[in-house]
């Protein structure tokens, strides 16, 4: 983990309430932090006017630039959405364990739901450096919430979109699109708990799930972010956020 300053390059709306921010690493510490960062890891961002930092997943890394995609849900993310290019962010990075790519096999399936979609993009790009094919299912509530689909396609993924109200793609939840996929060697998922629970119940393949919890610190000091696993209590911020699907107890 490094405490670094990143410079905002751009901060643009992707939907009415979801923003993409590209950040530049300027000093050598920040560049090192970006080089070490893996798909599924996150950063913890200090925000003016907020006491605690805000955890946000890494969505993409391009050389010395890093991208996050975040939804405005409260005070901190509202402040972020008003920030301008040129301003500096104080972040702790990289945090958490990230996805393990080794068990992916030949036809891994990636599933993202809502704001669980962003971390899957970097994962997809890294996976496609080692496999030919990556099937991706992205689930949203409605057409207006859809993000990053083109980015996944451009990366070379085979993408299926679902919306709960049927306004775009297949109607229903991500689990409703799974029967179309021929072979699943392994799976990776990030999204709301009901989605993760449903996936674990439906899929016979093993996989990895990225969990979310309210955090005090983000690096293992406070015991705020605990989740229950078959190996006992684990910290989402240091032991996770990515856990093996077989370890998690919902």
């Amino acid at each position: 983990m490094h405490q670094v300053k990143l410079k905002i390059l751009s901060n643009t709306a992707l939907t009415a309430d979801i923003y993409r921010m590209w950040l530049q690493a300027e000093d050598s510490d920040a560049c090192t932090a970006l080089r070490q960062a893996k798909a599924g890891q996150f950063m913890n961002i200090a925000i003016k006017g907020c006491y605690l930092r805000r955890p946000i997943s890494i969505c993409d890394i391009d050389d010395n630039k890093i991208c996050i995609v975040y939804k405005v849900v409260g005070k901190g993310t509202a402040v972020m959405s008003a920030m301008q290019a040129g301003e500096l962010l104080d972040v702790l990075l990289p945090l958490g364990n990230g996805f393990d790519l080794t068990p992916a096999g030949e036809t891994p399936l990636l599933i993202g739901g809502g704001v669980g979609v962003p971390p899957m993009l970097m994962l997809a790009k890294r996976l496609l450096e080692q496999t030919e094919k990556a099937n991706v299912i992205l689930g949203f509530n409605t057409k207006k919430d859809i993000i990053l689909v083109n980015e996944f396609r451009q990366a070379g993924c085979n993408v299926t979109v679902t919306t709960a109200d049927g306004s775009e793609g297949k109607k229903g939840f991500v689990t409703d699109a799974m029967s179309d996929i021929q072979h699943i060697s392994y799976y990776y998922a990030c999204g709301p708990v009901p989605m993760l629970r449903a996936l674990k119940g439906r899929l016979t393949a093993e996989g990895q799930l990225s969990m979310e919890e309210r955090m005090g610190c983000g690096f293992g000091l406070c015991m705020g972010c605990t989740c229950q696993t078959h190996e006992g209590a684990k910290q989402v911020c240091t032991d996770g956020p990515v856990f093996r699907s077989t370890d998690i107890i919902f």
Binding site: Y51, R214, M223, G224, Q228
Partner: peptide
């Protein structure tokens, strides 16, 4: 001890609750 159920962390002006 496992401790209490989550969420275990909340924020307030210039501080936090655990």
């Amino acid at each position: 001890r496992y401790g209490n159920p989550t969420p275990r962390i909340a924020e307030c002006a210039e501080g936090m609750l655990n």
